[in-house]
Each structure stands twice: as C-alpha cells, then as structure tokens.
C-alpha cells in the first residue's frame, strides 16, 4: 500500500491506505480475511457492497464465495434493503460501504428495514472519523452519534487488526443488527494474539491513579502510547478501552471512573453524541461527580488534507493526548 499516509502534506488519492498508526506491525485487510475464513463453515454468511468492495476489504470473501456475494452498485438504501431481505431468508449478510453512506444516506433503512425487525445484518463501514483526507463528504465523524439512537443496534468501533478479526467473528455469532466501523488496508496490530473481544464489554488496559483515559476505536492505540509516555514523566494514567459503543458497558465505565480523579475521553468522532456523551451520561446516572476532558473532533465539518496533518491538527494523536493530560496540571 502507499506510504502517502505517513507523509504529511500529501493528499491521499482514493483507495490509498489510511494506516492508523506507525511503528507497529500491521495486517492487510483483517476484516475481509476474517470474513472469508468464517464463510468456509458458515454457508449462511453472504457479502454485499455498494460499489466499494475494493475499498472496504471485502474482496477476499467475494473471491472465495462468488455465489454469495452481491454488488448492488452505488445505491446504499438498496444495499440495506437487499441485506434485510436476505436476512429474512435466513442468511447473515455482511454489507459494506463507507460510514457516511451507511448512516446519512441509508438511515431510514437501517432503522426500519433492519433494526425495527431485529434482522441479522452486519453493516461494516469504512472511513470512520478522520481516516480519510477527502473532507466532509467522506469523513464519518458523527456516525456513532447517529447510530446509537437506533434501538437494538449493536455498534462497534474496533481499535486494531486483532480486534477487527475477533469482532467479525463475534458479530457473526450473535443474532441482530450491527454497525461496525472498519479500519481498512494495512491495519496496525495493537493487541496481541489471544486478545479476547466480547460484545458489550470494556477492557482495562492500564491501571493508573492520577487520571483515567476512556477511549474507543483507534484512539485506544494513541491512548496506550500516551499512557506509556506519561508514566515516564511520573504521571499514572489508567486506560479503559470501550470498543462497543452500544450496548455500552456503563458498569465498567463507572467502576473505572470511581478510581481516578479526572477522566479523559478519546474518540475518533465528534465530542458530542459519541463516547464522551456516553461517559458523561454514565457518570451522571451513577452519581459520580468527576471532571471530564473530551478529546475528539469539534462540532464542525473537517477540511480536506493529508490524514496525518488532519489528525495532528484535530488532536487525534498520542502527543495530543499527552499534552491534554499534562495541561490538567
């Protein structure tokens, strides 16, 4: 894949890799490979895309099971409707497109055609948050907020290649509609083999007494690096990784928050309606009064540019997490 993503100042061409971090080993197309493996023993799994198969890593499944793969063209409402119909015949459709289209464009279909009937469809959505330099048309910066309003929808924001593979297996196993964010291309490996993903469960990755970071998606990788860097500076930062946005592990979040003096949330998403809002709601419900600092995107559309430039500008880096925590004093 192209190295453009690591060179600030270069604009990404369509389809180039938006690798989410440097310095780690990576796996190419972890989602598509996991789905193709699953397909061998699961004849009920079918794949769909809306003219973005190449860009959502689902081609390994298509190549293995061409009779169980359908490209509906640029028609995201129909993508979801067709998936719903397939589910009604007992299939387990995995439908891919970009997050912006799965949410803004096909919302009524996700809500009514899928969730209202609790159909067993998995929507896997590329370009979450700030993983493309294509600007507001392609950056799904508010998808978690939109989707968490849909009753019964499971929502997952995985951190790395290991978690994507594990989550793909887990959502295939669990009946019901799912929206999963997809990191595509060469995806870093943050968690070691054997990492256990469980739908609806948060995982404490670091213990700390000064500050508690609660993160989701690729921001967990940044937060891990930040926690390690802070430790060298004598700051003890705990870290709770929350890959499932819905159902939200409020119990784990409340327990984690109770043990630290200050909470920092970190998400690849606007700071309204997503993880930060969930954490604040959870603390309120649990009667926990703690200061919360929110790291994430502002409530505005983001411009075009190279991904590293944009991520640095909008604070989605480990350096930004370190700086925010040091600034707490």
């Amino acid at each position: 894949m192209s190295g453009a993503a690591t060179e600030a100042g270069r604009t990404l061409a369509m389809g180039q890799d938006e690798a989410v971090g440097g310095g780690r080993q990576s796996v190419e197309a972890p989602f598509g490979k996991a789905l193709a493996r699953l397909g061998q023993n699961r004849p009920d799994i079918v794949g769909l895309t809306a003219d973005l198969g190449k860009y959502t890593d689902i081609l390994p499944f298509r190549d293995a099971f061409p009779d169980r793969f359908f490209n509906v063209g640029m028609a995201e409402q129909n993508l979801v409707a067709v998936a719903a119909g397939l589910a009604r015949t007992g299939k387990v459709p995995f439908a891919t497109t970009y997050g912006v289209f799965a949410t803004r464009r096909a919302y009524d279909f996700v809500a009514i055609a899928l969730a209202h009937s609790n159909l067993n469809v998995k929507i896997v959505a590329g370009l979450p948050g700030l993983t493309t330099g294509y600007g507001g048309t392609h950056q799904a910066i508010e998808d978690l907020a939109l989707m968490r309003m849909i009753p019964g929808l499971t929502i997952i924001d995985p951190c790395d290649a290991t978690e994507i593979e594990a989550a793909t297996e887990a959502i295939a196993e669990r009946h019901g509609p799912v929206y999963m964010r997809l990191l595509r291309g060469n995806v870093p490996v943050v968690f070691e083999a054997g990492y256990r993903f469980e739908i609806g469960k948060a995982r404490q990755l670091r213990k700390g007494s000064d500050v508690g970071i609660i993160s989701t998606g690729f921001m967990t990788e940044r937060a891990l690096d930040a926690a390690d860097a802070l430790r060298k500076q004598g700051i003890s930062a705990g870290l709770l990784h929350v890959p499932t946005i819905k159902p939200f592990d409020a119990e784990a979040v409340a327990a984690f928050a109770a043990g630290v003096s200050h909470i920092v949330t970190a998400e690849n998403h606007v700071v309204v309606g997503g993880l930060a809002s969930l954490v604040v709601e959870t603390l309120f419900d649990a009667d926990i009064a703690k200061k919360v600092t929110r790291i994430g995107l502002p409530d505005r559309y983001i411009e075009c540019g190279a991904v590293p430039t944009l991520q640095a500008k909008y604070g989605l880096t480990s350096e930004a997490v370190v700086a925010a925590i040091i600034a707490l004093g």
């Binding site: 409402q77 719903a84 397939l86 015949t89 007992g90």
Partner: peptide
C-alpha cells in the same frame, strides 16, 4: 416507510435463489 418493499423483495429473491 414507502420505498422499502421492493429492495427487500430483491434480497428475499436472492436468498431463495441461493437456497
């Protein structure tokens, strides 16, 4: 929610064909 039925019919027809 008008405009939903035909697409779901397409999906059901595809599922029946697979079977």
């Amino acid at each position: 929610s008008l405009g939903h039925g035909l697409g779901q019919g397409v999906g059901q027809a595809l599922g029946l064909r697979i079977d």
